[in-house]
């Protein structure tokens, strides 16, 4: 029983590849750009091209492929449900019925929509994972903060938002570990997790979530006290140990990204969606 094993979100994979050393602003803006591109992608060729690019990123960051993909595993049940839902309930105009069963009918259009959507979600998750694996939480925040800074004039609390994000990510492994401990402690008392029907399974979660939330609140409380003790008084007057600076590699990366985006857009425009 090891919950944290498949956890890749919020974990930093130390390394010194070009991808690790890029300015976080490049990585965050780049990932955001790629995700936007992903939302418009609507045919298999374009998705294949996109997946190849994501694969190249993983290899460039020297992240073991199995490890990066393992993070996708917990998503699979949800994806499967979504996929089935799309097959049976999405009926884009002009699609043909493949088969019907009981009161449900599946269409080829629905099948394509479901498949494309699943690929989209998987790639989206993969991109985010690549970003968090190669970027430490503080770099992530520094980057987000720098990118949001122009919005500060519109009273967007960029610093505070960024710090909230750091702490949230910092606690993902801690809370996962804690959930594991709680599940174990309750298994030891005769709770049989993972057995029973769907409703029973949901019901089993309550006694786990309750202590988890109570502890999370306590942690948050202690965290605030610790931050106050370390002279945190909000964003104003703060300096940074690391000053963000764009390097040559950042400009090269932008060039590569733009080239990729251009090709991807061509693929999206030129090839018709399968429905």
């Amino acid at each position: 029983m090891e919950l944290t094993k498949n956890l890749t979100l919020g974990i930093y994979f130390p390394g010194d590849t070009t991808l690790h050393c890029l300015d976080p602003r490049t990585k965050i803006a780049g990932t955001t750009g790629l995700i936007t591109l992903l939302l418009f992608t609507n045919n298999y060729t374009a998705y294949t091209f996109f997946a190849a690019f994501a694969l190249a990123l993983i290899l460039a960051a020297k992240i073991p492929l199995g490890f990066a993909l393992r993070g996708l595993r917990p998503m699979l049940p949800f994806l499967a449900m979504m996929w089935l839902f799309q097959i049976f309930f999405q009926k884009p105009p002009g699609s043909e019925i493949i088969f019907s069963w009981w009161k449900l009918t599946a269409t080829d259009g629905g099948l394509h929509m479901g498949t494309l959507m699943s690929i989209r979600v998987l790639l989206l998750f993969l991109l985010t994972t690549i970003l968090t694996l190669t970027t430490s939480t503080v770099e992530l925040t520094d980057g987000t903060e720098a990118l949001l800074r122009p919005l500060q004039r519109l009273k967007v609390p960029a610093q505070e938002l960024a710090l909230t994000m750091v702490i949230a990510l910092r606690f993902v492994p801690t809370l996962a570990e804690e959930a594991e401990k709680i599940i174990k402690a309750q298994t030891a008392r005769g709770v049989d997790f993972g057995r029973g029907n769907f409703i029973q399974k949901i019901a089993q979660l309550f006694p786990v979530l309750l202590p988890l939330f109570i502890n999370a609140f306590r942690r948050a409380d202690e965290m605030i006290t610790a931050m106050e003790s370390r002279c945190y008084t909000g964003g104003t007057g703060r300096t940074k140990m690391k000053v963000l600076r764009m390097s040559k590699n950042d400009y090269y990366s932008w060039a590569v990204l733009l080239l990729f985006a251009l090709m991807q857009i061509i693929l999206i425009v030129k090839i018709a969606p399968p429905f």
Binding site: E178, A185, A188, R189, N215
Partner: peptide
């Protein structure tokens, strides 16, 4: 296994994890 866990009781370090 459930029977085994009743017969071999386990009390964890943090009692709050176990009391629900």
């Amino acid at each position: 296994l459930v029977q085994i866990r009743f017969e071999v009781g386990y009390v964890f370090q943090n009692p709050e994890h176990q009391l629900f």
